[in-house]
């Protein structure tokens, strides 16, 4: 237990000092995912003359600012790292360390999130000020939101890690990732509140992992869900988190046997 704590601390401090050096990049990455803010303006414009599908202009503002925050706090890029490490054989020295490389990647990501968090609050605060909103969140909503946000991060991280491990078999994982990303943009809530979609489509995507990455946590925060919807949401989100963790563990076990350690 003590050693686990020491290892975790060492890994986190290493990752944190690395990330504070990349502040400029963190800002560029943040600007690069300003899509929700663009969509916010468009939807607010549409709602100027009256609510659109039950959303007023300020509802849209709050929805998309929350979407922006959730996406920022759950961003993952581990696939590109894994792809490079496996292709170039950089994975080899990592295998000699007394822990699974997964933990280092996970802590790298969490350290980056601690650097990113205060930076992300600036545009969110500016957005709230600009739209003149003073939102009041219920305590229960905030707690549920926090849980759903952590689950969303686990979902995204384990999913992408699993896809990244496919690099043990093929050198074309980034193409697959881009297809997944296109689906994620369409069905996660990044461009529109999902309850505005046609009913039939909503019923299908409800069972996919995508809504639980963004839309579900945001709707919890805004207090738009009923008791049964919340329970069902957590059940499906939890299912996908476990499914992707198992997939990642399986791919790791199988993939390691195939690993040729290029360059070693």
């Amino acid at each position: 237990m003590y050693w686990t704590f020491r290892k975790t601390k060492a890994l986190f401090i290493r990752a944190f000092s690395l990330m504070t050096e990349y502040r400029a990049e963190v800002i560029i990455w943040m600007l690069a995912s300003s899509l929700p803010l663009i969509m916010m303006m468009i939807w607010m414009g549409l709602a100027e003359s009256g609510p659109v599908g039950g959303y007023s202009a300020s509802d849209f503002a709050l929805y998309f600012l929350s979407v922006f925050f959730v996406r920022q706090m759950t961003t993952v890029w581990v696939l590109w790292e894994l792809e490079r490490e496996i292709r170039l054989g950089e994975m080899s020295p990592k295998l000699l360390r007394p822990f699974n490389p997964f933990w280092q990647h996970a802590l790298d990501n969490l350290a980056e999130k601690t650097v990113r968090f205060p930076i992300v609050l600036i545009p969110v605060a500016l957005g709230l000020w600009f739209t003149g909103m003073r939102p009041q969140f219920a305590l229960l909503g905030l707690v549920l939101f926090a849980i759903a946000l952590i689950l969303a991060w686990l979902l995204r991280f384990n999913r992408q890690y699993g896809f990244g491990l496919l690099a043990f078999w093929t050198d074309q994982v980034t193409g697959l990732e881009q297809v997944w990303f296109a689906l994620y943009i369409a069905f996660s809530g990044a461009i529109l509140p999902l309850d505005l979609l046609p009913e039939g489509l909503q019923r299908i995507i409800m069972f996919t992992p995508f809504p639980y990455k963004v839309d579900f946590p945001v709707q919890l925060l805004l207090g738009n869900l009923t008791g049964t919807e919340i329970l069902r949401g957590f059940a499906i989100q939890g299912f996908w988190v476990i499914a992707f963790i198992l997939l990642r563990m399986l791919l790791w076990k199988r993939g390691l046997k195939r690993y040729g350690a290029t360059g070693a």
């Binding site: 193409g175 697959l176 881009q178 297809v179 296109a182 369409a186 529109l192 979609l197």
Partner: peptide, 30 residues
């Protein structure tokens, strides 16, 4: 890289379809 060729075609189709989907939803409400 034939698999990538396939993935990129899928990607472009999904992105285009998403664009139409947004416009469809927007104009069904306004």
């Amino acid at each position: 890289y034939r698999a990538n060729f396939f993935f990129n075609t899928c990607n472009s189709l999904i992105t285009t379809a998403t664009g139409f989907l947004i416009l469809y939803v927007m104009f069904s409400k306004a």
